[in-house]
């Protein structure tokens, strides 16, 4: 193969590769970050709810069910949506306990 032809081929492949990488890498990075942020928030919410539960003297079945569900979701891991759902359940449980506390 002649050098110019190689230049065209290699250049085309490099362009495609660069375009692919500049699109995929930041997107993957931001999704990973979003996932970790969501789980960080979810874990914090679950911790808070646990503290509220321990501080409450009476039992609140509704809140316990919500927290159990949140902990189950957290145990199974998953994407940002799962994390947000777990955080939501935990927050609602937290509020229920605080209302009774």
């Amino acid at each position: 193969m002649s050098p110019p032809l190689l230049v065209w081929l290699a250049g085309g492949v490099l362009l495609l590769g660069a375009g692919f990488l500049t699109t995929v890498l930041p997107r993957r990075r931001s999704r990973e970050r979003e996932r970790r942020v969501a789980w960080s928030a979810a874990r914090a919410a679950i911790d808070s709810a646990e503290v509220s539960r321990d501080a409450t003297t009476e039992r609140v079945p509704e809140a316990e069910r919500l927290l159990t569900r949140a902990e189950l979701i957290a145990a199974e891991r998953g994407g940002p949506t799962a994390a947000r759902a777990a955080a939501d359940y935990a927050r609602r449980a937290d509020q229920l306990w605080r209302g009774h506390g």
């Binding site: 960080s40 914090a44 911790d47 808070s48 509220s52 321990d54 506390g101």
Partner: peptide, 13 residues
């Protein structure tokens, strides 16, 4: 105590 514990949890997070 509960509020303080919760705040410490948040701080750790």
């Amino acid at each position: 105590n509960p509020a303080l514990t919760r705040s410490i949890g948040k701080l750790q997070a």
